[in-house]
Design a protein around this nucleic acid. Structure first.
Lengths: 208, 208
DNA sequence: TGAATATTTGACTATTCAGTCAAATTTATA
DNA sequence: TATAAATTTGACTGAATAGTCAAATATTCA
């Protein structure tokens, strides 16, 4: 008995995520999300108790969406250096796609909304912090493999190094969004990142 | 003849900057700024044509405020490595002060507002991009001195390296704001930054 | 078919928002 | 002290905001 579930909730998640990523949490209204998603406001509040709760759900949904890609990129079967370079390619391509479609580099949705709501929405910050940790664990895993393979200094503190990598990539995405410019990300981010990681830049290690 | 200028405009700039830095552009209202600054709304619009114009003026005002500090930190009379370590100390102390006073790490005001308004306020983005360039010029200047002193690789591309440094510091400040945590900035940012710059970490070069 | 359940609708509120404006007030100076 | 100019005030508007709710509708299955 009972009515079957519809795709309304998913439409709201997708639309909210896109609008907030492109613009900002504060500049996107519930009415705007509903209009774009072709959903009435009453339906919105049937699925989400508040705008903030929708934002949290959208962040969670997007992260779940992203995990399979990260699993593929950071597959243990891939050479660890290749994992990082593939990650940069993956990020760049998404950013370039969005720049073409929306006319603007959009940066990292987690970081943008996290920064915007850092002092207002404790729950959102906690969620972003969790995601940050989760992403860094991919880096730590790859760094351990690099140590085992003798690619980087044996005494590398992988936790610390992972945080450096995350901050570096994050900072670059942020600046790309503000400057609306992917030049650095396209041409310099990859070699800069490898230097930061501490990989010797010989043709031998780079051409896997 | 005529009435002498008052400090109302300055009060509005100070208050707007503080509230937007602590929270966000979208969550701070003109009414909120006026109330905290003890200024009536009519006065606000006597001095600023719009909320966005106030934000631009506040950003400009804060940058003008910051320049003397940067000039001192990046004084050519200071050892170039010391310039960077002093910068980190300067940033950390300000962040720690704000964390204690407001209960929250506030990060970089320029980057936070720039990211928030990247797709909405062209003028604000342009202003932030200008400030970014201006700050990187300090880095480039120091890097050239480091090359001249043989502290880093003679073939270092200073423009590129300055952008790396800026992204790295920016990313760290962003994460500190989101995580509301200054641990990394306090203990690891300095050595990590020197590694990124490419300075050999011997006692000789570090204890200036 | 009919009961049970989930979903959708649209009209509704109360508040907050950015921005306006004419009149009142202050103050420097001639 | 009169004048001129900048400043301040407070009441105002109209639009947008997040959120509410009871009723209508669709769908499932017994």
């Amino acid at each position: 008995m009972g009515r079957a579930p519809t795709n309304t909730k998913l439409k709201l998640l997708e639309t909210a995520h896109e609008l907030i990523w492109r613009n900002s949490y504060g500049s996107v209204s519930v009415d705007g999300i509903c209009e774009k998603a072709n959903v009435k406001k009453g339906s919105f509040y049937h699925y989400f108790p508040s705008k903030a709760d929708l934002a949290i759900a959208a962040i969670e949904w997007w992260m779940q969406n992203t995990i399979p890609y990260l699993d593929e990129i950071f597959s243990p079967s891939r050479h660890p250096i290749d994992r990082f370079t593939t990650l940069i390619d993956f990020i760049y391509e998404k950013q370039e796609d969005m720049r073409i479609e929306y006319g603007h580099v959009c940066g990292c949705p987690f970081i943008s909304i996290g920064s915007e709501l850092a002092a207002q929405e404790e729950k959102i910050c906690q969620k972003i912090a969790d995601i940050t940790k989760q992403k860094m664990s991919y880096f730590e895993n790859a760094l351990r493999d690099m140590i085992a393979m003798g690619l980087i200094d044996q005494n590398t503190d992988v936790i610390l190094k992972a945080e450096e990598i995350y901050a570096f990539i994050t900072g670059n995405m942020m600046l790309a969004r503000i400057k609306n410019d992917l030049k650095f990300m396209k041409t310099s981010l990859k070699p800069s990142l490898l230097t930061l990681i501490g990989v010797e830049r010989t043709t031998e290690t780079l051409n896997i």
